[in-house]
Amino acid sequence: MSKEFQNGQAGAELWARAREGWRAAAPRPEAPESLTLAAYLDGTLDEAARARVEAWMAASPEALEMVISARSAQAAAPEAAPEGLMSRAQGLVRAPPRANRARLGAWLSGLIAFQVEAWRPVAWAGVTAALLVVSTGGFELGRQGAQRMAPVQTAASDDLGFGLSDPADELL
């Protein structure tokens, strides 16, 4: 018995006498949904909703037990969850749903199609410019290369006799 009411034996006897009769006469409300029960624990329900939850708790020992244990769990510190639980739970969601992937795919295709259409004239102009640059550059490079490769003619090299007289002259 509650320490405060240890001397109130009469109170305990009165309740023991009335308990079954009260339960038999009391209405049996449906169990509240989980969010309503959470709101009761957080103290955010209005008076009417609060009274309905308390009526459910008063009518059923299991309901009262549920609220008592949920309240004590709410007050208790969280416990480190096992690694196995964490990895199994995280594995429940593997990839974005198909619908999202399809939406992403459609968005990308649209974007690419738009880019191709919008940039087509620019692309042709770029290709033409590139060809022009390549051909002009190639021509210029070729020209310079040909200049470098052409034989350099000097006065000394014009005389290929290397100091010898032309044998034909000797025969003459």
Partner: peptide
């Protein structure tokens, strides 16, 4: 042992408090 208790004699909260303190 069930004694008839008129409905509404005790509010749910009153019954709840007695249950928690005594039972």
């Amino acid at each position: 042992v069930k004694i008839d208790i008129p409905p509404g004699l005790l509010s749910p909260r009153q019954a709840l408090v007695l249950e928690m303190l005594y039972q």
